[in-house]
Amino acid sequence: MEFDPVRLITRVASRQDRGAFAELFQHYAPRVKSMMMRRGASADRADDLAQETLLRLWRKAGQFDPRRANASAWVFAIARNVSVDLARRDGRAAAWLLEQDDTEEYDQDQPDQHLILAEREEIVRSTMAKLTDEQLHVIRLSFFDGLAHSEISEVLGIPLGTVKSRIRLALQRLRDGLGDLR
């Protein structure tokens, strides 16, 4: 029988079907782990992130709507959210550790550096806002989620050439808009 993630997620949502979940886990856990490792996670951390992603799939299966997203896109969105949540949690922990540091370096505020960073951030945001929704989506999947072009093609259900074209056009727009920052 062909792998049908929509059917499997529906079974998990409606009957808490452990067999369906096992199939989903077997299919997606290695892919999510691979994505996390491409984003810089160690193998152990990537395993943890993949497991957390699939646990969230188990808990949120009833929220899946196949009319709004295909199953792979939904699973990778969960993975991205797990990764972001963990980074935020780690960031808060790092901020707390910095607050515990007694060195005076952190007390010396440099307003000019903060202003420069804020200006650069605004330029990047406004340039990214000029991308089409389709371009922004493939850029996020490629550069922020670390998916390969073929994986993006599979997730979005579009031809590989279309993915490459959207990325090329988006990068050209970003280069044009960010020229002063280079």
Rank of each mutant, 00 (worst) to 15 (best):
Q63I: 00
E134Y: 08
E151H: 05
E105V: 14
A79E: 04
R59F: 07
E99K: 01
S72P: 03
T132P: 05
E119V: 14
Q100N: 13
A118P: 06
W58A: 15
E104Q: 10
A29V: 00
I167L: 15
R89Y: 14
R31Q: 12
Q63C: 04
D48Y: 09
E2G: 01
M128G: 05
L160E: 11
A46T: 10
L160T: 13
G161H: 04
E2T: 14
V82A: 04
H27Y: 09
D65H: 02
P159D: 14
R67G: 07
W74P: 00
V138A: 13
L136G: 14
A129F: 04
A13G: 05
S126F: 05
S142C: 09
S14N: 13
G146N: 08
R120E: 15
A77C: 04
N81H: 13
I158Y: 06
R18P: 02
E104A: 05
W96F: 11
P159A: 15
V163W: 00
N70T: 11
H137V: 10
Q26C: 03
E151P: 05
G91Y: 14
D107I: 01
E99P: 00
V155Y: 02
W58G: 09
V124E: 12
N81Y: 03
D4P: 00
E134A: 15
S72Y: 00
E23P: 01
S126M: 15
D44S: 09
N81M: 03
A61V: 00
A50R: 02
D101C: 05
H149C: 06
R140Y: 06
L54M: 10
L136R: 14
R88C: 06
R173D: 10
F143D: 14
L141M: 12
R120A: 07
R140P: 04
I167K: 15
R7N: 09
T10E: 03
D65M: 04
S150A: 14
R15N: 04
A69M: 10
D109I: 06
N81V: 03
A69T: 08
T127R: 12
L169H: 13
S42A: 15
K164C: 10
E134I: 07
E122T: 08
L147Q: 12
F143A: 10
L117G: 14
S165G: 11
R11E: 03
Q113L: 14
D48Q: 13
T10R: 10
D133L: 08
R56P: 03
